[in-house]
Every structure is written in C-alpha cells, then in structure tokens.
Design a binder for these strands. Structure first.
Lengths: 202, 202
DNA sequence: TTGTTTACCGAACATTCGGTCAGTTGACAA
DNA sequence: TTGTCAACTGACCGAATGTTCGGTAAACAA
C-alpha cells in the first residue's frame, strides 16, 4: 500500500532481459555474425554504449540465448515418462515441437550455430549430447520392433529430428497452426505416412 | 600428338572455379558473414589480394554459389515427367535429394541465406518461387485424394521439404548411405510411415 | 634475348567492428 | 534544494574488414 502507483512500472528503459529478447530477434534476422552492435542499438532505440550497461558484450548475449534453448530441451528429457520406447519417442517429438514454439527465437539461433567461438562450440557439444539421447531412444524403439526394420535407426533419427528442427524455418506463433497442430501433423506423417488410408484398415 | 606432355596441366595455381569451390567450403564451415577474405586466402594458400585476380569480390562468390544451387533445382522441375500428382511429387522429392547431394555445398549455402544483401534477397526470391511450385504439386495430390485429408496441404509441403532440406545438415558424400538410400528412407517415412507394418496389410 | 601474359605479393586504403570511458540526464529521496 | 543513482550519451580506441594498386617472378612466345 505504501508503494506509490504500483501499476505503473517505475523503471524506464531496458533491462538485461529485454535487451536479450530484442537482440535475439535481430540475430535471427541477420545472423549472429551479420549483426553489429550498432544494429542492436538501433533496434533497442539507444546508442551502442548503452548496451554495455546491461550486458557484458555481444558473445554473452549469444551464450545466454543458446542456454535458454538448451536448458529447455534438457529439462524436457529429464521429465521423460515411463512406457514403451515408441510412445516415449512420440512424447519427446511432441515436447520438442512445443519447446521449439515456446522458445522459437532461442531455438532458431541454436540451430544455426556453426562453432565459430568457444561459446558456439560449447553449445554444439550440448546439442550433440541431446542428439545422442534421441538416437538411443530411436534405437530402443527399433530393437523392440515398433519401427519398420527396413530403415537404419540412425537415418530415422536424423530424418525425424531434421523434420522437427525444420519447423523453426517457417513457424510463427500468432499465425496458422498451433504447436500441437503442427506436432499432430508431424507425427501423423512420420509414423503413419502421408498416403491416404487404403480404405480398409483398423 | 604435337602437344607437349598433354597429361600435365599447363596452368599452375588457381582459377575462378577452384576459388569458388574452396570458398564455398569455408563459407559453410564458418558462415558467409563469419568468413573473412583472409580466411579464404588461408584456405587457398595465397594472399588476400590474389583472390581478386580470379573473382570480383566476396559477394560475387556468394552469388555464383547460390545460382549453382538454384539452377539445379529449376532445371529439375523443368524436366518433371507426366503422371499422377503423387508420383510426380515423389519424383521431385527424390530428385531434390539427388541435387542436394550432388551440389551439397552450394545447396547448404542456399539454405542458410537470410537476405542481408541484394544478392541474398534475389536468391531468396528464386527459392520462394521453387517452394510455390512444390506447394502447387502437393495441393494437386491432396485434391485428387492421394494424400490423407486430415493434414493441411500447406503444412505437408513445409514438413516434407523441411525434411528434405534438413538432410544438408548431416549428409556427407563419401560416408554412409547413398543419395538414393536416403531418398528411399525419406519416402518410406513420409509416405508410408515409420511404424512397423501391423502384420496384415497389402 | 626480348616482350608478353599469368598469377601472384605486400602495402596501403577507407570503413566498420566490438568495446571503453568520462561525463550527463532525469527521476526520486531526504 | 540538494544529493543519489540508474540509465544513458558521445567521443574515442585499436583491431579487423573488404578492396585497390604498384610492382614482380616465372612461364612461354617470338
């Protein structure tokens, strides 16, 4: 009660969070290397030097963004439910689509990292660890006969998560299908096939 | 017969073709914006200035590389065979995988273009034209009932060619599956589904 | 031997880069 | 009114950027 006008935010200007959020958008528009601090300053409506009041530098912005994507993915697989491998695989695909949509700018940035700095290399290593987890899951589903045996499980992993990751290229949160709609379509295509049902089937 | 030692190449050093080929490899390793002319010079084993003897500049290298990818894609769809839409779609997918494998560095570069220059914007526009062609093909197949009706054709287009394009992220020419093996696996997954056959069918 | 061409080097160019720092502004407290 | 402090500006730094240019060594032709 003693606080004056609690609805109006007392702080004007930016904080580390808003700087990161806007910076990541610019990174995704122009690419990280193609973005100058001047570009970021323009997008933030301040001068270059003001950015350094909120964050230590360009590479730290990248590091924080990449962690935000990777932390989401690892938190997800830590919550993996019990059940048959094929069902866990479907669950992980669906959750991955959800995280990709929820944290779209951060995941998009992660998917474009090439390893040009120690920051990027560290992110790539964490990503490879995630990929190994997925790979094991697909191998389990293949081993128990839930997945067609005429395609190499390593190839299945790459195609399946290549499809998931490609969503970042076109998905926009406020337009078209919801994340769950996209996940439904992806799972239908990848697990049951695009072909129209042959009229007679369970 | 009169030509002296016809097996030995008379020219030493580089030509525009070898410069392009090596440059594109470096572009894909570090990203176009992350690659300096100094990086290219090091990879070519010459000084920075020598590059300008063979090519007009950095952006021209990018333009030539992107055209090489796009020309391949447009030449392919110009050769489209006759037949039902679903069969033409499968053919285009298979050919796209082949071109992606044949011209891997060029297509990889194309898939990462963000529109930072007029060169990149022109490439993006050509790519969108290709995407529209694919989109029409999928709509045809959906209209004649060959594709399951419970998924939006626009979504099918994006998922299907998202999967194709994602191959560029991991495919390596001399290792593992051949382009046709990859296309087989992709078509099996996308059209018939990953799930093991329910024991009774066809 | 001389001249020409090919393929390159080294130094320099203007510009842009990420980053620093001394100072200024304006909202708020006392 | 004065002081405090978060938030910012503007001038600047050294390094790196893409590109240009005068010169040159080697290969070949005459």
């Amino acid at each position: 009660m003693a606080a004056p006008t609690p609805t109006r935010p007392r702080r004007r200007g930016h904080d580390p969070e808003s700087v990161l959020s806007i910076a990541v958008d610019v990174f995704n528009e122009r690419g990280y290397d193609g973005t100058s601090m001047e570009d970021l300053a323009r997008a933030l409506g301040v001068t270059k030097s003001a950015i350094y009041y909120h964050v230590p530098g360009k590479e730290q912005l990248l590091a924080r963004a990449l962690d935000r994507a990777l932390d989401g993915l690892f938190a997800m697989v830590a919550d993996e439910p019990a059940g048959p491998a094929i069902e866990r695989l479907e669950w992980v695909v669906r959750q991955s689509v959800r995280i990709l949509a929820d944290r779209l700018p951060y995941v998009t940035l992660l998917l474009r990292v090439r390893g040009n700095s120690v920051t990027e290399q560290a992110a790539l290593e964490r990503r490879r660890e995630f990929d190994r987890f997925i790979s094991r899951l697909v191998m389990e589903a293949a081993a128990d006969g839930s997945i067609r045996p005429d395609v190499d499980p390593a190839l299945v992993t790459r195609l399946l998560f290549g499809t998931v990751n490609s969503i970042a290229e076109w998905y926009r949160p406020t337009r078209g299908a919801s994340p769950d709609d996209v996940a439904d379509a992806l799972l239908k295509m990848a697990f049951n096939g695009l072909r129209a049902e042959p009229a007679a089937r369970g």
